[in-house]
Amino acid sequence: MSKIVSIHSFRGGTGKSNITANVAAAIAQMGKRVGIVDTDIQSPGIHALFGFDEGRIQHSLNDYLWGRCAIKDTAYDVSTILKAGFLAKGKVYLIPSSLKVGEIARILREGYNVDLLNLGFKELIESLNLDYLFIDTHPGINEETLLSIAISDQLLIILRPDRQDFQGTAVAVDIARKLQVPQLFLVVNRALAAYDFEALRDRIQATYNTPVAGILPNSDDVMQLASSDVFYLRYPNHPFSQVIGSIAQQLVRH
């Protein structure tokens, strides 16, 4: 059975794209076939972690939504990022959103049929024979986000230890509960080393009545990589990567 995993946060810049790419890569290293869709149409970004820039994107999700191509034409096989020993079985496909101003503006200006996006997800899972479809989202609440939450089997809500994030997360959790997401997890990102991680976990779990799948440390090394690569694959033994691995395992176990 394939699973749809959405990564969301109420506020922007929480680390959604980095966490999506890293957890997806970790699951692919386990030998799974994984797709990643960038539904952050207004501010796409996850392609950068796979070495993509505008020039390399021939067909984007936008082209599919405008009926210019099939959804499978927008999927790029980026499995070569996986470590050699894992290449045989694991697969990673990236479905990027367009970086062209005109394309982004057009989606905002004209809207599009949301059921087409839903059909596209299903077609991707079938045609690429995916075990997991990861959906990276735009922060806050919009049409793409609502769809991805409504259809996901597992949802990761990312928050930083910050009062604004805490309040916004309550809204996101509320929506996820309304939409009856089968498995809901919180992930805390950019926790300072000075924090007591266990106390933080207990407090957050109690506040939202939701399991915390992991607390990722704030890391200069992650910042230095600056979204130019998948950190987990490059530094598998780093404390950040260990938490990523643990989150991946929890997703696969459930």
Partner: peptide
């Protein structure tokens, strides 16, 4: 498949997921 906007057509009409 669901109808999709033809290039440069008028915006689609329908409900919002919200």
């Amino acid at each position: 498949p669901p109808t999709q906007p033809a290039e440069a057509s008028s915006p689609p009409v329908g409900q919002s997921l919200s």
